[in-house]
Computed example of a mutant assay.
Amino acid sequence: MAKTVLAVDDSASIRQMVSFTLKSAGYEVVEAVDGVDGLEKAKTQAINLVLTDQNMPRMDGLTLIKSLRGLPLYASTPILMLTTESSDTMKAQGRAAGATGWLVKPFDPQKLIEVVRKVIG
């Protein structure tokens, strides 16, 4: 059974790149347009890994992470930030919110696959 990744990003092109990259590596991908959409989709299906952007309308990535961590099902699910934000302050906020790891855009597709495999197999 393929592992399912939830890709949350307000950029359609980033979602398409993430989706194409991970599907080609054998993962199922569920796309969400922002944190609100991502939270709703996470509540209705089993997700093995969440990849989220930080800067999005309606709900940003840190708020999404905190919201997911508040749900028993997502207390220990890996959550990776995939964002242009790379400051130490933002990374510290991500860790404090419950992020498992951090990837900076633009991302290398091979590196994304390596990180996802390391985190969920």
Rank of each mutant, 00 (worst) to 15 (best):
M1G: 14
K3V: 02
K3Q: 13
L6P: 07
V8F: 10
D9A: 09
D10C: 07
D10M: 07
D10Y: 07
S13C: 04
I14L: 02
I14W: 02
R15I: 08
M17Q: 11
V18K: 05
V18A: 07
F20M: 13
F20N: 12
T21C: 11
L22G: 12
L22Y: 08
A25S: 12
A25Q: 08
A25F: 07
A25P: 07
Y27C: 06
E28V: 00
V29N: 06
V29D: 08
V29P: 00
V30G: 04
A32L: 02
A32D: 12
D37E: 00
G38C: 08
L39D: 09
L39V: 13
L39S: 13
E40V: 09
E40K: 15
K43D: 00
A46S: 13
A46R: 14
A46N: 11
I47W: 11
L49E: 12
L49R: 09
L49V: 09
L51P: 13
D53E: 15
Q54I: 15
N55C: 13
M56V: 08
M56D: 14
M56G: 10
M56W: 15
P57F: 11
P57M: 14
P57L: 14
R58M: 11
D60H: 14
G61A: 14
G61R: 15
L62H: 15
T63Q: 13
T63H: 11
I65M: 14
I65F: 08
K66W: 08
L68K: 09
G70S: 13
L71E: 15
P72W: 05
Y74R: 05
S76W: 00
S76F: 00
S76L: 00
P78E: 04
M81V: 15
L82A: 01
S86Q: 11
S86F: 13
T89Y: 15
T89N: 09
K91Y: 01
K91E: 02
A92S: 11
A99I: 02
A99V: 02
T100S: 13
G101I: 05
L103H: 01
V104Q: 06
V104D: 00
K105G: 05
F107R: 03
F107N: 01
F107I: 03
P109F: 02
E114Y: 00
E114S: 02
V115I: 12
R117M: 10
K118G: 00
K118L: 08
I120V: 13
G121M: 02
